[in-house]
């Protein structure tokens, strides 16, 4: 049980670090959004899963109405909030950036540029 928790923590920390570094490695906002959104969501899934696994381990001894089971449930709700809101806000930022005239750097093709109606 403990080794699973440690593995999940290491994976989650690694992806969160890569997401933060990707913000500096990439040239423009769209590619930065790639790094920021994907890596932090994936890392968050693993870190919250580690918290949930560790607190599920105490259910057998303390029963359903202990603080630990509430911890599991609320961690799960927080995870659902992260997974739902993260891609949506990334989409909002990308759309706003393109409408305000930020061009994708080093782009080989931009279908959206010709199709703009307004």
């Amino acid at each position: 049980m403990n080794s699973i928790v440690y593995t999940f923590i290491v994976i989650g920390c690694f992806f969160n670090l890569v997401g933060s570094i990707g913000l500096h490695r990439f040239p423009d906002i769209y590619t930065r959004l790639h790094a920021a959104t994907k890596c932090t969501t994936f890392g968050s899934i693993f870190l919250v899963a580690a918290v949930m696994i560790q607190s599920v381990g105490t259910w057998g001894t303390e029963g359903m109405s202990s603080p630990q089971s509430v911890l599991t449930l609320h961690a799960f709700i927080a995870l659902v909030c992260i997974v739902l809101t993260n891609p949506t806000s990334a989409h909002a930022i990308a759309r706003a950036a393109h409408r305000s005239g930020v061009k994708p750097a080093r782009a080989v093709v931009d279908d959206l540029e010709g199709d703009r109606h307004d």
Binding site: T40, A78, N86
Partner: peptide, 16 residues
């Protein structure tokens, strides 16, 4: 736009 990408990442990390 680049600043708000950083802000969004910070928000996720704070929640975690």
């Amino acid at each position: 736009p680049s600043r708000i990408v950083g802000l969004d990442t910070i928000n996720t990390l704070v929640v975690v």
